[in-house]
Amino acid sequence: MSSHDVMPEMSLYQPVRVEDAIGIANQFADRGWLVGGGQDTYGWLKDRAKSADALIDLKGIESMRGVKETADGIEIGALVTLTEITKDPIIAQRYPLLAQAAGRVASPQIRNVGTIAGNVSQDVRCWYYRRGLNCYRAGGNLCYADTPEGMNREHAIFNASRCVAVTPSDTGPALVALEAQMVINNASGQRVVAAEEFFVGPNLDIQNTTVLRPGDILTAVRIPSKWANAQFYFEKVADRNAWDFALVSLSAVMRVNNGVIEDSRIVVGAVQATPRRLTEVEQAVRGKARNDSTADSIGDLASRTANPLNYNHFKMPLMDNLVKRALRGQA
């Protein structure tokens, strides 16, 4: 076993136009590695747990920066940093859910360089996988976490399919709640994918967490005006209040009229490989008041179908509690 402190040799490309980046990404296909903030890049490569022939640094592409108003909401450039999201006046005013979620990512230092695209595209944080073991997700034959003695406190309670890792993204659930659209460019053109469809579970693709394929570049995130200025709730529970991944997080948007929930989208992070939308809860609370009584009436509806592992049963009551807090509107 060897440990590394030095980056491996690889080519570095620093395109300044999306088209050029796509061309390079296409050329190298799965041997190319897109890098924005680099927070889920350098560790992998340094540790030799993953490798690439070419590093395609996107930071020079101006068109992927900035937050713009559009006819129906806003468009956030893929390279917008998490710190910029927390400070952007439009996001703070209309979509504080996203600002709060971005503000709870990791630490200030990481938020200063980490981008919105990187945060939603990052790989899972299962410690076995990150160690470089050849588990299912790494193309192997087994999962080390999902065993009678596996150390799986942080792992999935829903929709595990061989791999039991969870989505580590704090902004992902918020974007799913806000019905964001992910703008993806490749050599064939542009496609727009709903955030809900952007994330991929291990049942569909055990080696990727998103629909992005080699040659694809996530260039922007669009947030429609539908949920602008709606009522929000965000909470992330982690062991530590900074520099930590969620044990469970919750992002909720609600259209409340005269105290009654007309519509809502409630999405939970860190309970399965993708942000988990609680459609049953959304339906159950439709037309009900946003208050303690409604919160209490939900009971364990959110976690009822969970399939916990050996050390993560706590995620069930924790998730139920966060749902109740979202419905109460307060911690």
């Binding site: 406190r153 529970v237 049963h313 706590f314 995620k315 069930m316 009551p317 924790l318 509690n321």
Partner: peptide
């Protein structure tokens, strides 16, 4: 935190 949640939930 998980131990406290488990304790409170009495699971």
């Amino acid at each position: 935190a998980d131990m406290i949640v488990n304790h409170v939930a009495q699971n």
